[in-house]
Each structure stands twice: as C-alpha cells, then as structure tokens.
Simulated assay, not measured.
Amino acid sequence: MNYIFKISILIIALFIISCNNKNKDASEKELKDDYSARIDSLIETTSPRLFNGVILITKEGKTKYSREYGYSNFEDKIPISIEQTFRIMSNSKQITAVLILNEVEKGKIDLQSSISTYLPNLKQDWANKVTVHQLLNMSSGIVDIEKSLIFEPGKGYRYSNPGYGLLGRILENITGITYIQAANNLFKELGMNNSYCYEFDKTNSNLINGYWLKDGKVDLVEFDSIGFSKQEWKDFIPAGGIISNVHDLNIWDTYLHNGKILSPAYYQMMVTPSNRGPHAAFNNDTIGYAYGLRVHDRHQINHLGHGGRGFGFASIKFYIPEKDVDVIIWENVYSSNPDFMVADVIYYFENEIRKIILSSTLVK
C-alpha cells in the first residue's frame, strides 16, 4: 500500500512538472513572439483604409510569420493566396541594378561613363553628361526622356522611372539580348520559378487582379485600358514591370544578401548609399538611395529595401542584415480616394508593420 502511494505521488509530481514546463515553454514562446498578434490586429482594421494582401516574414531562413488576408478576386470572392503572383512594381529596380552590375563586373559597362557611350542613338543634349551610376542612384535629374534635366547630374535626388528604362536599353545594347530575356534567365538560374517580365498578349501565369479602392468600394483595374504603347511598356519593365510572388522574392533577398548573386565588392556597391531622398514607405524619412535599394542607415536598426505601387498594387520589401530578417508585404488594393492618395496612406500598413518588426524580439 505504501509502495502504491509513493508511486502515485511520483506520477502526480511528474504530471505537475510536465504541465509547468509546457506552460513555461508557451510563456517563453509568447515572449519571443511579440509581433504576430499585433500584425493580426492591425490588418483587421479598416481605418484609414482596408488591408488586402499577403505577408511573409522570415529569420535565418525560417518562416516567423505568414498571413493571407482578403481576396485575389473580389468579384468571385476568391481568397488571396501567398502562392499567387503580383506586380512587384518598383521592386523591379533592384533586379535591373543586379543585371547592370553583372555587366560591370565583366568589364562591359563602366559606371562612371556617360550613357551616350552605350546609347549612341540617344540624341538628348544631356546624354553626354549623365552617367550609368547616376541613373542607378536617382541623381540623373531625368524626369522625362524628351525634357531637359531638372538639375545638374549628380547634384540632387529625383526618383526616375525613365532613368531605369534607359538602364534597360543599355543592357540590351551591351548584351545583345532583350531585357526580358536577361531578367527571365536570371530568375531561372536562381530557381525563381514564379517570376517573369510582364508582356502584352502573352499568358501571365497566376497573376492576380489589382483594384482601386474608393469610398470603401473596390473596382477592378483594367490594365489593358491604361494605354501603354509597346515601346512605353518595354521602357517601363526595368523600372516596374516584373511579376513575382513572396516566396520568390524571399529567395531573391536570401541570395542577394548572402553573396549568392553578386560578388562581395559589387554587392557593397549595390547596398552603399550614394544619394539621399525621402520615401513614404519608410515613414517619409530622408534615407540613403543605393542601386535600386533604399538604405535606412540612420535608423538605430539598419535595414534596406524598396517600396512599390501602381496599377492597384502597393508593397514594401525590406531586409535587416544584422539579424537576417526578411519582410515582404504585398497588397492588391490601392487607395484612389482623393483624400487618401497621399503616399503615407497608400503605405499605411507597410509602415506600421515595419515599425512593429523594428521594435520586436525579431531584432533584439
């Protein structure tokens, strides 16, 4: 009897210890994850607008947060999926920058040479003044290919889609293949099987709809009615015409920031700011601009990435080198209310999630 009693006491004690350990483990997990619940709560709000998109956060290659919220097709109420592809808009620029740097490393492009060296048919008077470097870091002063520069090259900051269009032309002249071929070849090499350049009159696999948001209602963006000519779109692709999904973009960031795409010297060129300018996706802070990347080097936690918006899409993608944390936020709803067209509203959720991550245990 005494023996049975002792065994019973031992079993009860082991059960209590097991429960305490489970509670301790749960408590420690809760302490370690101080961001998931905050992000969940944030994206369920509808002010100043609704959130509709996907989020992926990884650390050291492991998924720390993944969420799909809303619809890829509002008309048929089809839920949005993290597997689906989006227009990545201005995040296309870092891909263009890598393609250029690959040719620089081969000795085929000199960053400090004028663009007339590689575009002899470009007759604008500023073609002999603007360098490849200045196209890459937004210091060219180009606002329109057919107009005069708004400042002396290298003496200011002005975000320039046309400048990146010229980089695409340079790549084509140097390599002898189209920009589309060059980019798609790179995606194939990296195993980014859901990434490609958008082309008219071709199947654009798994690409979801983009929507305008106005007065609380969403309207489908009819891309074909926007009115791009074929040449205009060809020039836009290097600046904002690439399609991808969050998994592929996570592959891109992992490879890019861990020396799998560029050699160390050329990677440092790409991520070292050589110009400064503000952007709403980074809380309107004036931060560094490198080559197709914004670098928040004055924040207490250094992070770099880019925003993108247009045609019904808004996004941010940023990486924290010190902690190997990658954050990708994609939406397929873009506010078109006159009062909400200010960029800090368009990037509201991107900014707030960035703040949550930068104050979380992910970076401590």
Rank of each mutant, 00 (worst) to 15 (best):
W212Y: 15
L213R: 09
D215N: 15
D215L: 01
D215Y: 08
K217V: 03
K217G: 05
K217P: 01
V218D: 00
V218H: 10
D219G: 03
L220S: 01
L220V: 08
L220T: 00
V221N: 00
V221T: 04
E222G: 04
E222S: 02
F223M: 12
F223H: 04
S225Q: 13
S225W: 00
G227F: 01
F228M: 09
F228K: 03
F228T: 00
S229T: 15
S229H: 03
K230R: 13
Q231N: 12
Q231S: 14
Q231K: 11
W233Y: 11
W233L: 15
K234D: 15
K234H: 12
K234E: 15
K234N: 13
D235T: 13
D235Q: 13
F236A: 01
F236P: 02
F236L: 09
I237V: 13
I237E: 02
I237T: 11
I237N: 05
A239Y: 02
G240D: 09
G240F: 01
G241K: 07
G241M: 04
I242S: 06
I242V: 09
I242N: 05
I243R: 09
I243L: 13
I243K: 12
N245L: 05
N245G: 08
V246W: 10
H247F: 10
H247S: 06
L249F: 07
N250P: 08
N250H: 08
I251V: 13
I251G: 11
W252K: 12
W252V: 10
W252C: 11
D253S: 11
D253C: 08
D253I: 06
T254N: 09
T254Q: 07
T254M: 03
T254E: 05
T254W: 05
Y255N: 09
Y255Q: 14
Y255K: 12
Y255G: 02
L256A: 12
L256T: 03
L256D: 02
H257S: 05
N258D: 05
